[in-house]
Design a protein around this nucleic acid. Structure first.
Lengths: 218, 218, 218, 218
DNA sequence: GATGAATGAGTCTTCATTCAT
DNA sequence: CATGAATGAAGACTCATTCAT
């Protein structure tokens, strides 16, 4: 029993890890995630990763069974982490409108903090090996949103359209604005979140104004 | 000379091509685009492409100076083509609302017809070698939309928010819905376009109904 | 009979050539020789040669059966030409000392005029495919010199050492000085020839002075 | 740390090597040098080298960053080694005439022992990629000789001609006689050295005799 | 746990040569 | 004669993965 307190299983390698081991593993994942994001998954070699960390090749394969598994794990963890952040952001709020707004804000903030991961999501979508894993995580995220959207429709707050579609639309707006304005243009997360929230609420026609914090000074 | 009418230079190879040559080149681009979309850029080898076309390996390098250049050209052509379709869809219509609606519909239709290219866009965004080219084309597309959005704001039809941001939001919704519902779920382009148009007009709150053509029968 | 006046056989291709054909052939050889000298034999592709001449690939293989054969022919022709120049330089002179001096001068002059070919000789020596051909030509050149050296020894003008060795020593001095001072440093042929003649006559000890034309101002 | 004494960096690979690694590296260089000498640089493929050594292809690139770099290193090492041998041969002798004689003898001996490298020098001269490196080493060798020749001139032992030119003449004689009589004809090094020394001292006219050891029995 | 070394299939690319038109 | 097109073997080099120590 007490062993389990200090060494836990990780996927990919059937092996218990001590605290030090877990740290190493984490460092490797973080380092690799950044390299993948900067140069792309394929152009980043395992040699590059271990060299950059100043360790031998054996270390890598001690913690991960393959480069592919490492990527998959980075991906899964990121999605879990993003979802957790959304849930934290929503907290105990009941109003569907606010729940969605907070979800969007949480997402943008997380994406701003882990902006390098945005590119990994996009890459994952482009390769059949990784697309299913990406999709799976995305569906969970959408399911959360769908839940709130349905509530909003029932409460008469949202127009009566397919909640699944609306949810994906929200995701599309949020991720794209984050990609363009946070990742590429380095705008502050809050402004980008404002814009995403506004657009999701009113689209083009609603009465929102730029006063509440437009992304661009323009 | 009339010969010049028939054999013209192409980028990547400093060489005139006859009609037959141009045809081959096109076949290669189309074939490669599909392979890239199916298996990813990196996992698709040049050997695979030429084998799939039943030609020798030299043929590839007769028409393209490298695999990278081929990809870049596929990308550029796709962006030009998508933009052309949007402009055709808009035609001579004057009303900004309609212009945007038609632009969205044109985009979704084009994406439905060339659905394999969606993944290439995503991959291109994930690798620093290709991202600039992608961004460049995307900026032209956004510039078009910005134009219409500005007109709509001036006409009092749209809320007074940053047109650049709104345009990117429109793009985000459109591409993401196309990716999920057209590419992944094979829904008809018109329904997806309806949903995108509706969301862009009203966001979550507007009075749109699912009656005009929901994406999902649900 | 009259046909032979206008079209003659060439090695490598079993084919009669018209005057125009012979010109083309010559242009190809000259152009290729320069490319070979500049970039090396292997790094120079047939495509590069025909492109540089603005003709199609077929032309090359119309006149030469292979790249190798072309090189061999350039080599043979150069050696024949160099030998002819030596003989011309010697003319009807009888004195062995003068014969050798004139031979050296003729060689240096020829090498200065065809300086790009020096590198080809060196390359040929380094590859077993071409070395025999080179050696064969070189032996003829040496045989000429040996003849004069023997005469000089018999006449008591030269010291009684192995004529074959002395001849090779003369060749070594001449070619190396030409390579270093004509090819690499662009000194005038006459000065280089002076130095070679002087060294061959007296070695280090003789009473020669730099007055008759040193290679370097220094 | 004592570890640093045993694992040191080598050019071309940014990597420390153990003793075993250094041995492998040396084996590769020696093996490749022989192959290059036998078949030529270009006709010798990396595959051939590793196959001949019975190791995998990766081994080559573990120790050398490219085939070109390997060649350059062989070249540099050979030049350094030849120079070292010359200096050893000269030792503490003071007389310029003897210094040069010993230098020539040392060179011929070294060339006889490493006769395969003569061809590499020649090849290197013929390709612009390698010529500069060759020249650089050659200039150091010449500089040594120039030093002795100047001394000899000052001492009134040699005729007053450009020392730089004389030095190159000495090199030309020595290398060419080594190439022809040692490499091609397998004569003993000492005889060839005798002939070179004699020619460099007296040229054609001096009083040397074949008695002291002619190259050819003739 | 960790390292340097090794593997070898696989990648992109080149190029001498041939051929239909 | 000449060209653009095509061939495909061969080349240099990479890299995920494994292994002896």
């Amino acid at each position: 029993m007490w062993i389990l307190d200090r060494s836990v299983y990780f996927p990919g390698v059937d092996r218990r890890l001590t605290q030090r081991g877990r740290d190493r593993r984490r460092q490797l994942m973080d380092f690799a995630a950044h390299r993948f994001a900067d140069h792309g998954y394929h152009p980043t070699s395992v040699a590059e990763i271990v060299q950059g960390m100043g360790v031998g090749k054996g270390v890598f394969y001690w913690y991960f069974s393959s480069k592919e598994e490492l990527f998959l794990e980075i991906l899964a963890e990121a999605q879990v982490d993003l979802r957790r952040r959304q849930q934290q952001a929503i907290g105990e709020v009941q109003d569907p409108v606010q729940r969605i707004e907070r979800g969007i804000r949480g997402s943008v903030e997380w994406l701003a903090e882990h902006r390098h991961l945005i590119g990994l999501f996009q890459f994952a979508a482009s390769e059949e090996r990784f697309a299913p894993a990406l999709r799976q995580g995305q569906e969970m995220a959408v399911a959360d949103v769908v839940h709130h959207v349905k509530d909003g429709i029932l409460a008469g707050q949202f127009r009566d359209s397919d909640p699944f579609v609306l949810s994906h639309a929200i995701l599309g707006v949020t991720h794209h604005l984050a990609q363009v304005f946070v990742f590429e243009r380095d705008e502050p997360a809050s402004s980008v979140a404002d814009a995403a929230v506004e657009f999701c609420r009113h689209g083009l026609l609603g009465m929102g104004s730029r006063g509440r914090g437009a992304v661009r000074a323009s």
